[in-house]
Design a protein around this nucleic acid. Structure first.
Lengths: 333, 333
DNA sequence: GTGCGCTGTGTAACCGGTTACATTTGAACA
DNA sequence: TGTTCAAATGTAACCGGTTACACAGCGCAC
C-alpha cells in the first residue's frame, strides 16, 4: 500500500494492457472482448482502483455534478425536494452540490459563480426570477438550467413545477365551495419569492367571489403565521377562514387560535399549502394542498440527467397538486 | 465569443505572459510585480476567465469539495446544520456535496463511494458508528473525516458536537428539580442513531432518582410522538412529564394531549430537545434544550478548512447546549 | 491468393491547470 | 566595469484520464 490510490496506468501495467483498454472497460465500451473485460475488472477491484474524477472531468469536459441554488433548506418542502433530487441524480452517477441563497439575488449570483467555478454541468434554480448577470453567466458558458417550483409554458426556459396562481385559485374556490365569503390570505414575504407573488395574484383574481378577501404578509415561519393571525383575531376582522400559503404559517394560525381560545374549525377555518408530513397529525388535521415536492425533485433530476446525457434540450413538466380535505375547514351554511 | 470559456493560455496569449505567471497571479503568489498583476487581473476579467476546476484539481490533487453524509435532511436540525456548513465552507472557497443515507449503513457506504469517486477532500459523518468498510475506504485514501452531533473525547477520531448522554441527564434533572417523579422518555428509533442510544443511556443512568422512568421508542415524527404519547395517556400510565428527545416528538405530544383534552402543563408536562424555531411559538411555549445546530455547522466547517489548508490533524470541539425554560413544564409541589 | 471488412487493442495527443527549475533582468556594490 | 544576488518571468514536465486514429489478426468472398 505504498501508493495511496491506483491509477489507470497501474491497472494497465498489472494486466499488461494499454490504458485505452482499461478506460474502455471502465466506461462500458463494447469493443472489448469478454476475456479482457474480466481480466481488467478483476485487476480493478484487486487494486481498489477508482478513476480520478478530476482527470476524467478534464478530458471529457463534464463533471457529473449538478448544482442547486435554493433560497433556504430549512423548510421541509425544500428539504424533501433536495432529498429527491439527490437520490435521483445519484441513481445515474451524478452528484449534487448545494448552495443557499437566502432568497437574495446577490447571494444567488455569488453562489452561482462559485458553483460554476466548481465545474457544475447544470443548474437548478428556484422560481423564474433571476438576475441578468446570473443568466448571462450561465448562457455564456452554455450550462443548461431549469426553473423549479413553477410551471410556466410561456417561459422560454424549461420549468418543472406547478402553476402557483392556479393552485391558489383552487384553494380559494375550495373555501368558497364550503361557504366561506370572508377570507384572509396569509403569505410570506413577496419580495423573496415570485411563487408567493404568483399565488397572491392567482388568489386576487377571484376577488369578485368574496365579500372580503384580504392579503397579509408576514415572515414565513410558525411565529410569523401566529403573529399575523393573532392580530387579525384581535382586530375582530371577522374572517371565517384563513388561507395560508404554507403549512408552516397555518401551524402558526393554530397556535394563534389556541392563544385566544378559538376552536378550529368551529370558530374559524384554516387552510394550508404544502402538506408537510405533520399536517395530518395536528389537531384538527389540516386541510391543505399536497405539493409534490418529492415528485418534483425526481422530475428535475430525471430531466437534467437526460439533458446532460443526450444533450437534448431540457424538458419542462407540469406537476399536479391536489387538495387534501381534512378537518380544519368548516362547511358553512 | 467563439470559444465558450477562456483558458489560462488565452489569458497568457492576451497579455503576452506565460501561463506560469497567470497561474501565480490567479493564486495570489507574491512573486509577481504589481504592474504585471494588474495587467493579468484586467485580462482575466475582460476575458471572463474562470480557472478550470478539473485541471486545477488534477494538478493539485485537491478538489476543494467536502462531502457530508447525513441520515436525513428533512429534520430542521440537520437542515440548519447543513446550511451552516455550506455557508462556512463557502467563505473559504470550498463547496459542499451532500448525500443522504436514510440512516442505513449500506446506503451510507454507497454514498461514500460515490463521493469519494467525485474527489471529495474530506468527509463529515453523523454520529460515531459507521461500517468498517466505510472507515477502511477513507483511511486507505487518507481522506480526513469528522464525526458530528457527538462529542466523545475518548474517540480516536475527531468529534464535533455535544455530549448526548450528559444532555439527556440535564434534561431529566430539570424535570426532577421541578418535582417530577414519574417520567416517560419518548425517543426515535434506537437502531437509526447512536445519538439516541447515548441519550437513552444518559437518562437511564438517573433511574434511581425517579419513582418511574420508562422509555418508549416511536418513529421520529410528529405523528410518531403523537401516537406514542396518545397510547400512554390512554393507558393511564400516570406520567407527570414526557421528555421527548426531539421537539418534533414533543409537538406530537402536544397534539396527543389536545386529542384527549389534557392541558399542558396543568395536566401533564412536556419537554423537548433541539429548540427548533417554532418551539417558542407553540402554545404553551415549549421548554427544551437548545442544540447549537448552526454553531456546530460553523465549527465543523472551520475545522475542516483548517485541516485541509494546513494538513494539521482535525480539531475536536465540544459544543454546549442549555435548557430553555418556557411554559411546558409544570413546577409540581 | 488477394482484397475487404470487422473486431480488438495500442499509441499518443490532448484536456487546462501547477510548479520545479532555468533563465533573464536589473540594482547594488566593489 | 565586472560581479553578485534577488526578483520576476519563462519553460516544460506532469497530474490521470479519454479518444481519434493506426494497425494487427482473422474470416470470408471472389
Amino acid at each position: 500500500m505504498a501508493k495511496i490510490a491506483a491509477s489507470i496506468r497501474d491497472v494497465a501495467r498489472d494486466t499488461g494492457l494499454s490504458t485505452a483498454t482499461i478506460s474502455r472497460v471502465v466506461n462500458g465500451d463494447t469493443k472489448v472482448s469478454e476475456k479482457t473485460r474480466q481480466l481488467v475488472l478483476d485487476a480493478c477491484s484487486r487494486l481498489d482502483y477508482l478513476p480520478n474524477p478530476a482527470a476524467r472531468a478534464l478530458s471529457t469536459r463534464r463533471s457529473r455534478v449538478v448544482a442547486a441554488i435554493i433560497p433556504t433548506i430549512e423548510h421541509s418542502v425544500f428539504a424533501k425536494f433536495i432529498s429527491a433530487i439527490e437520490r435521483t441524480l445519484g441513481l445515474h452517477g451524478y452528484s449534487l452540490v448545494l448552495a443557499i441563497s437566502n432568497a437574495d439575488e446577490a447571494e444567488e449570483l455569488a453562489a452561482a459563480r462559485k458553483l460554476l467555478g466548481m465545474g457544475a454541468d447544470a443548474f437548478i434554480l428556484s422560481g423564474q426570477t433571476h438576475s441578468k448577470a446570473l443568466l448571462g453567466m450561465l448562457a455564456k458558458r452554455q450550462v443548461p438550467y431549469v426553473y423549479t417550483s413553477v410551471w410556466d409554458p410561456l417561459c422560454e426556459q424549461p420549468t418543472v413545477g406547478y402553476d402557483n396562481a392556479d393552485l391558489a385559485g383552487q384553494a380559494l374556490r375550495h373555501l368558497y365551495a364550503n361557504g366561506h365569503r370572508r377570507v384572509a390570505v396569509v403569505h410570506g414575504p413577496l419580495a423573496e419569492s415570485d411563487r408567493t407573488v404568483a399565488r397572491r395574484d392567482g388568489a386576487r383574481a377571484l376577488r369578485g367571489l368574496f365579500d372580503t378577501l384580504d392579503f397579509f404578509e408576514t415572515p414565513l415561519s410558525v411565529a410569523g403565521g401566529k403573529a399575523c393571525v393573532g392580530h387579525r383575531l384581535a382586530d375582530g376582522g371577522g374572517y371565517s377562514a384563513y388561507l395560508c400559503f404554507s403549512d408552516v404559517l397555518a401551524l402558526g394560525a393554530y397556535f394563534a387560535c389556541a392563544d385566544v381560545g378559538k376552536q378550529i374549525p368551529q370558530d374559524v377555518s384554516v387552510m394550508g399549502f404544502d402538506n408537510l408530513d405533520w399536517a395530518e397529525a395536528v389537531v384538527p388535521p389540516l386541510t391543505t394542498i399536497d405539493l409534490p415536492a418529492s415528485g418534483m425533485g425526481e422530475a428535475v433530476g430525471t430531466h437534467i440527467v437526460e439533458c446532460l446525457e443526450t444533450s437534448a434540450p431540457m424538458q419542462s413538466q407540469q406537476l399536479t397538486a391536489r387538495i387534501i380535505e381534512r378537518g380544519s375547514v368548516a362547511q358553512l351554511t
